[in-house]
């Protein structure tokens, strides 16, 4: 039963989108935020996202438990993040190029291993009904949220607090601000970055699990088209602050929902053009927030991306 909402359906669908589509953005951007705070950039998170989606779907299919899939996706992400960090710790190796290489490698591997997973239907993650108070079915479906979304919302302030207030957070920020200062303090920069990159990979893998196990909730090769990469850009926009990463992710989720939302009210003209909205928005935001004269406020000093 659908209630006719007229044009109200568009903002409602965008709200629903902000909740649904944003979850992978939240996880990947928080992971990337942590990694970049340690002074390393991981562009390979797009590949980690796709690998996470594939492995989560495969494991959920085999075991019947979607949460086992989420865990395995995280562990695969941990491995990929660790691999990225290990390669970047070699002398003379560029982290941006390595990220591109791992993005292509992980995407290819996911397509290779995921071939038999396109047809079967794996059990999906269950949703929490937050729309019980409303009689309108669209509002109810918009407020169906997933536990991973809740986890993401909790994780953002937790990471913000940890980076700011804990000794562990200080060490990560120190490695990101100045290698020399970290060395003087007796901190192993390579080790800190390895852990931070692996942890970032873990979060991105979970973001991938959300894609294949909740929304859209199936595995195919077109599952992620640049969400992982947009999340990296989003971290710059959020000025390396986990709380702002959360708001930015919600904004991007809403932008990603424009195209399906307009289609739902019958606007089919320019479906692909509106589909490009998140990319245009990312680019516009990067143009507005970046500046050649001064380095970005809040940018980790050792980070290659702002140089």
């Amino acid at each position: 039963m659908q209630t006719d909402l007229g044009l109200w359906a568009v903002p409602l669908a965008m709200l629903a989108g902000a909740i649904r589509v944003s979850t992978p953005f939240i996880f990947v951007s928080l992971g990337e935020c942590l990694t970049e705070r340690s002074g390393r950039i991981n562009l390979g998170l797009e590949g980690t996202l796709v690998m996470g989606a594939m492995s989560a779907y495969g494991v959920a299919l085999q075991t019947g438990s979607p949460w086992a899939g989420v865990l395995v996706a995280g562990l695969i992400g941990l491995l990929l993040g660790g691999l990225h960090a290990a390669i970047c710790n070699l002398p003379r190796v560029n982290d941006i190029a390595t990220g591109i290489a791992l993005m292509l490698a992980a995407t290819g591997l996911a397509f290779f291993l995921g071939k038999p997973l396109v047809q079967p239907k794996a059990p999906n993650l269950s949703a929490v009904e937050l729309g019980w108070w409303s009689d309108i079915p669209q509002v109810r479906s918009a407020l169906q949220v997933n536990w991973l979304f809740v986890l993401g919302i909790v994780l953002a302030p937790a990471l913000w607090w940890a980076l700011r207030k804990t000794r562990w957070g200080l060490v990560v920020r120190l490695a990101g601000e100045s290698v020399d200062a970290a060395r003087a303090m007796g901190v192993s920069v390579a080790w800190v970055r390895l852990l931070a990159t692996a942890a970032g990979g873990f979060l991105s893998g979970i973001g991938g699990a959300f894609l294949s196990l909740y929304y859209p909730g199936s595995w195919n090769e077109g599952l992620s088209s640049g969400q992982g990469l947009m999340a990296v850009a989003l971290v710059i926009f959020a000025r390396w602050n986990p709380l702002r990463c959360l708001w930015a992710s919600l904004l991007f989720g809403a932008a990603g929902a424009i195209s399906p939302a307009l289609q739902s009210v019958g606007v089919t003209q320019g479906y692909y053009l509106f589909g490009a909205a998140p990319y245009v928005l990312t680019l516009a935001i990067m143009i507005i927030t970046c500046s050649p004269e001064r380095s970005l406020r809040g940018a980790p000093g050792e980070l290659g991306v702002t140089r």
């Binding site: 562009l43 941006i96 591109i100 088209s225 640049g226 990469l229 947009m230 990296v232 850009a233 710059i236 003209q269 320019g270 479906y271 692909y272 053009l273 589909g275 490009a276 990319y279 245009v280 990312t282 680019l283 990067m286 143009i287 970046c290 500046s291 050649p292 991306v305 702002t306």
Partner: peptide
């Protein structure tokens, strides 16, 4: 964008790829 605004060219160029593919889909379907 890299030179005048300091926008990371790696991310920008890949975003432009997605935009180009979306534009192509729009043009050949419309």
């Amino acid at each position: 964008l890299r030179h005048s605004r300091g926008v990371n060219e790696t991310i920008a160029s890949l975003l432009l790829t997605y935009i180009a593919i979306a534009l192509m889909n729009h043009l050949v379907e419309g």
